[in-house]
């Protein structure tokens, strides 16, 4: 296509949008809402991922000791823990302390413990693994090593909970993928219909253009530009709204909900760019399908 035709195509596309304003505003609004749903989902996913990552890094571990071990053995276990990368002993919980804490945790039911012939609770070290640079802490390996140390009864960490959460994240990602796919199809359908309506409103003009020797592409390109413009506008609008909502929530609501302990981050630039590109691509593909169908007739 000749370069000098592009200003004509752009004029035509903008003219189409202006003369079918209502159809375009409705299409645009629906596209923005769809992209916003998708964007919000991405925003939540990104933050959930970050939070889980954070919890994963500051892992806590309980190292339970055998009853009746000597002080030397206990010190030996403590120095073994300290030698582990990023490990820090948060506190030592003696058998007596464990029972006291358990008693207070039971509250009004604490009387149940009165009948016990001896204290069944083991002493333990509470260990935390701090976040840091370099290789990730392999908790499974540490657990195995610790359990081999003389005087260690059992090692427990939030493994089960973490695994459950990771499965949940996998599920959320899958749901996101399905919702994203459905929304993409919806957006495609919206663009197709918007362009189809503008094509029908210009049916007479297209017929005349063809009669005076316009090629198919000469007629198609303005409609495809129209779809692309709709894609750009809805992508930009959705991102602006999403960012505004993010700013509002991150400064106001997080404190209100007492969740300020977590960093609430916006979607990375690559994701934002992907939403925009996806929106433009959907606009282009939707209009391409719409004009293709029209010319087949």
């Amino acid at each position: 296509m000749r370069l000098r035709l592009w200003p004509y195509f752009l004029r035509q596309a903008l003219g189409n949008i202006m003369s079918n304003r209502i159809v375009h505003v409705i299409g645009l609004g629906t596209m923005v809402v769809s992209l916003l749903i998708f964007g919000t989902f991405l925003l939540l996913l990104v933050n959930l991922n970050a939070w889980v990552g954070e919890w994963g890094h500051s892992l806590t571990m309980s190292v339970y000791l055998q009853d009746g071990i000597s002080e030397a053995e206990r010190d030996n276990i403590a120095s073994f823990i300290r030698s582990l990368p990023r490990a820090e002993i948060k506190r030592f919980v003696s058998k007596e302390k464990a029972l006291t804490e358990f008693r207070s945790a039971l509250g009004s039911q604490a009387g149940l413990l009165d009948g016990l012939p001896h204290n069944p609770l083991p002493a333990s070290f509470e260990v935390i693994f701090n976040e840091g640079e370099g290789q990730k802490v392999d908790v499974r390996e540490i657990k195995q090593d610790l359990e081999k140390v003389e005087g260690v009864e059992e090692v427990q960490y939030s493994e089960e909970w973490l695994h459950r959460f990771e499965s949940l994240m996998k599920m959320i990602r899958l749901v996101g993928l399905v919702i994203g796919g459905l929304l993409c199809m919806g957006v495609l359908f919206i663009v197709m219909n918007t362009i189809k309506l503008t094509i029908y409103s210009r049916k007479e003009e297209i017929e005349i253009l063809k009669l005076v020797g316009a090629t198919d592409w000469f007629v198609k390109i303005p409609f495809m530009l129209e779809g692309m413009i709709q894609g750009i506008l809805s992508g930009v609008l959705a991102l602006v709204i999403l960012f505004s909502a993010y700013l509002f929530i991150s400064t106001e609501k997080m404190h209100f909900l007492d969740l300020a302990v977590f960093d609430f981050v916006f979607i990375p630039n690559e994701y934002a760019l992907s939403i925009l590109l996806l929106s433009v691509a959907l606009g282009l593909v939707g209009s391409f399908i719409a004009v293709g169908r029209f010319f087949k007739v």
Binding site: R2, E205, E207, I208, L209, L211, V212, G213, F218
Partner: peptide, 26 residues
Amino acid sequence: FVFQDFKLLPAKTVFENVALALEVTG
């Protein structure tokens, strides 16, 4: 081609209607 029913575009001016035949050629 001069059509019996003219086939002019009502939303375009006389000038634009005539120019259309050249616009498609680039």
